[in-house]
Amino acid sequence: MRTALFVTCLNDTLFPRSGRATVTLLRRLGVQVDFPPAQSCCGQMHWNTGYRAGTARLARHFVDVFGGYDAVVVPSASCGGMPAEAYAVAAESAGDPGLVRAVHEIVPRVHELTTYLTDVLGVEDVGAWFPHRVTYHPTCHSLRAAPLGERPYRLLRAVGGIDLVELPAQEECCGFGGTFSVKNPAVSGAMNADKARHVRATGASVLAAVDNSCLMNIGGRLAKDGAEAGRVVRTMHLVEILARTPEDGPVPGLPLAAEATR
């Protein structure tokens, strides 16, 4: 069984801690994970902006890099969903039937991280310990495009010491939408402001999700608001919570759950 980590370009450059946490967690669960260094980007930016030729080239690259693996684990719902949702259409658009076949062949082996944990490894309690107040934002991709359902909640509820609180209006988009946030910054910013307000209202110290892109968006707002309010809510990929054990202790600088509920 050869398992590869597709860390995603965003995590590679901006959120390497999520990639490291994925490696830590998978090792703890007995999975020897490989990191093929030729990997780059799933092509989501090209796809969502309408550039199918570019998407097809990155699809080809993905298939070349990961084709030899039995499983490809992706710590992102939106990037992890790209092969299934976009690659075949992009390959057809590029007039590349060989790529279409290769895509159909690889898709069943590409797994978003939480689905890999619950459905492939069959675990919910991953032995994590995280004594802080956490709220969870179901990103649009993980909620609707490739629904994870209860999986992330089941994983979080099994975490020792956690104080998991519900995020109001959680099903509402944070306003990121990739190039949407660049092309329509005013609307995106207004959506994000509401999302950040709901997050702060929970009193959580940490906002978790399965997509660092959305967390980067909300986190940017939380940081700006927090700088004014004197209390910043941190954003963490779900895997960073799952990777922590009692031996790691609490996260330095974060209030303990008991304090948080005070």
């Binding site: 910054p185 910013g189 994000n192 940017g220 707002r221 940081a223 700006k224 700088a227």
Partner: peptide, 10 residues
């Protein structure tokens, strides 16, 4: 630029 009107830069 519009992105950073309402967000800190990561």
């Amino acid at each position: 630029g519009g992105w950073t009107d309402s967000r800190s830069v990561p």
